[in-house]
Design a protein around this nucleic acid. Sequence first.
DNA 1: GTCATCTATTGACACGGTGTCAATAGTCTT
DNA 2: AAGACTATTGACACCGTGTCAATAGATGAC
Lengths: 215, 215
Amino acid sequence: MAAVDADGPNTVIPDDRTEPRRQRLSPDERRQQIFECAQKLFNERAYEDVSATDIAAAAGVARGLINHYFGNKRELYLEVIKVNSTVSEVAVAKLPDGSFEERVEVAVAWFLDSLETSGASWLALGSGSIGRDPDLEKILIAAENDSIELLIDATGLAERTKNREQIRAMFRIYTQLVRSGGREWLLRKTLTRPQVHTLLASTLRVIVTEAVPAI
Amino acid sequence: MAAVDADGPNTVIPDDRTEPRRQRLSPDERRQQIFECAQKLFNERAYEDVSATDIAAAAGVARGLINHYFGNKRELYLEVIKVNSTVSEVAVAKLPDGSFEERVEVAVAWFLDSLETSGASWLALGSGSIGRDPDLEKILIAAENDSIELLIDATGLAERTKNREQIRAMFRIYTQLVRSGGREWLLRKTLTRPQVHTLLASTLRVIVTEAVPAI
DNA sequence: GTCATCTATTGACACGGTGTCAATAGTCTT
DNA sequence: AAGACTATTGACACCGTGTCAATAGATGAC
């Protein structure tokens, strides 16, 4: 336990007895308050390391109230994840018109650029501490979704509405390749940027020309 | 609770009373037997969905015996993971002499096979407590290294001693592709096995034919 | 201002999971 | 066949979850 301790609620109330011991809020407020406490705890520790009792204590509330508002612990957790994972509306770089190969080159270069500039902390977690820092992780997930849309644009698959979810899945796989490629280049320094670039570009091409058509 | 039910042991013994109700085995045998039951269950379901009681029931044994032999449930689980993710030398030996394409096909098929059999135990790795558990992490890194050696063999790069560490790096990147591909196939179920197979095979080919030579 | 009503909130309960440990009962030795 | 050794058991204590009738804070009526 970090900040909140024995005494209970986040907003610590002095021993003033003007406040009733039982603080009654509107359902919306209470739900929100519990949610925020849960969010904080789930961001600090893993799911199984956070007990409903912990959340209730942090919110200064009886454990049963959690079930009343969220059904069960898992549902609360999923709601936290959901909110954490919502895609931020970040403007994605506009890709130039050009041949397929050119657009792939530009997309890969863009990936590596953004890795280089803003990716130091981003890469750090992938290797060892992926569950440790969910704040970073949620940014990652949002970035991943953005990346997928970028890839769909870059590879000219935007019109293909048929098996969109499967195409997304393939690109989601590919983003992992980008991530681990960046790790070898920037963190372990086993590969140079051109080497990683070659690897990423050729795999992206082959995914679009062979794997996607196979859907 | 799938196959084995109320009555207990895997090797069902008829109501013949010649067998003592308590079957005493050598520690090695018993340990092995419990281990195999645990392995089966952990491959079918996730860690938290398999209770020690389930394992004990499957083995036809008192629950306490699990703790006696393995300490606690988590240690037993780690041992299963360790064995599951250890690449058997058999697999390497099975790589046929043949064209490059054939060997790639076999290697990819082998990867997917071992993913499929490892099944649910693989689930816990990506989502859950990876950074939090150094023991688990160590096991996984070792397994990754084994996979890399397998890939070097399969792709006929064993002789190439020149930039060995860079080749390793590229295959390390590739193993992440395998991992996330498996996740889409087995966990998210967004892709079918043939689809993932196509993706993995074509990317592996292109890595060897384009990315590795570029070193 | 007081009362009645509504409902947010509580706390005790049942249940299931885990790890421990003294007691029990196969098996092996002599 | 008796005794020693130890594999195996089963009950116990503890912890976490979800449920639900009871409780008490707030709100509106008068």
